[in-house]
Nucleic acid binder design. Sequence first.
RNA 1: GGCCCCAUCGUCUAACGGUUAGGACGAAGCCUUCUCAAGGCUUAAAUCGGAGUUCGAUUCUCCGUGGGGUCACCA
Length: 451
Amino acid sequence: MKNNDKIIARFPPSPTGWFHIGNARTALFNYFFVKKNNGQLLFRLEDTDKERSNDEYSKDIVEGLKWLGIDIDFNNVYKQSEHSATYRKYIEKMIAEDKAYISKEQVKEEGQRAEVIRLKNPGKKVVFEDMIRGAVEVDTTELGDFVIAKSIDEPIYHLAVVVDDFEMGVNHIIRGEDGIYNTPRQILIQEAIGAPRPVYAHMPFILNQDRSKLSKRQQGEMVSLKYYREQGYSPEAMVNFLAFIGWNPGDDTEIMSMEEIINKFDIMKVQKAGAIFNIEKLLWINKEYLKKLPIEKIQKEIKLRITQNSGFQDDEIIKKITPIILERINVWSDIDQMLKDGDIQYFFEKPILDKEMIVWKKGGTAEEAAENLKLVSEVFEKMDENKFTSENVKEAIWKIAEEKGKGNVLWPLRVSLSGKEKSPDPFTLCGTLGKTEVLSRITIAIELLSK
RNA sequence: GGCCCCAUCGUCUAACGGUUAGGACGAAGCCUUCUCAAGGCUUAAAUCGGAGUUCGAUUCUCCGUGGGGUCACCA
């Protein structure tokens, strides 16, 4: 860095699709690097491809970055589309200095220009230093006099990038591995316009299960950050997870905040090889973050999901079932699935019972079930409504359960209350539903059994 | 195919040239238990192959092999 000691990096997405998870990770690593080194991260929209660029995608990218907690200045976003005069200036300069020339072309396909601007390629070996990979050497001869602009007013990507980075004072470029092929020709352009060479770092890819580059074709919407936002993943979990694809603090720590990551971040320790996207690990990390959330926040989210999906909104019940739900989910959208499976409704309304299901499969009869339910309900009748907690219920009927066989008492009770083969234990159910509702559901079950 | 990049458990990864090759996710088993979940404990599981350098290679070099990427008037 000749003129400037401050590290300036950039994140330059082109808004031609939903914010890609791999791009999100690149942005994150840029941010880690810059924060660690008291530098600055700039944002640039590469929106010169008018056909494919759109505003919705730009918004999605900005929102995604904000969601992740990357605080960069979005007020004065540098848009490529607004700098055509700048590109023109450099193109003219290069032509004037004989570094580039207008080339007459044979038009072979429709849409091809009869004239384009090509760089005079000195045809040499370019060696550049990569913070992740070390020295990378490429022979640029085979590139030939490559095209740098379609016309004096239409630069192509490589030229635009080099000019923008130069104009913006960018001195560190951290980008995806595929940028390695672009680097030599961009260096040639830098030399032609007299721009200093930035320091490079090329990040390994995130991979599909078969180790090919992470693709929408294979992963569908799961390549978009949008998907994870919608599913209700915690941004902290996402940052943690993405950071650990290709990097780690060097010890056994798995859960780290953005601040801790930045603190320990070292770009030299970034992995060279690509890494498969492991959703299982993400799920686990997300759950770790879920568990750390304040209870009010958890209740609020659970209520939101339940109300949206089912219309139920009894605050008392929601409060009671919060711990039950929390230990059964990894991500908020799991609540939607629970609702779909009917695993929550029975806390709010009487389940439809199935006679067969109430009977304990491993050796009970309908008569025994009915009899035991009667015994249990007699005990419940005598209990104080205010002391009808799961602990007290357990204490009150444990003896009966042991005498009559636990399976033959607890299974029918639990199924009578939930109507499900799988559910939380009967004591928890009792404590949540309350004495009146419990007795009512038991009565219904007994009637059903005697039919 | 040319060029480029990469290579430790299934996955993410740790290991100044000297470790019983460590951790995590996942899996399996056990405990707890009426079922599910959660939790606790335990187990299985890896240095791609071959040369070389070295007293000693996961680690350094070379050659294979394998995988991936890239070869635009797209970004």
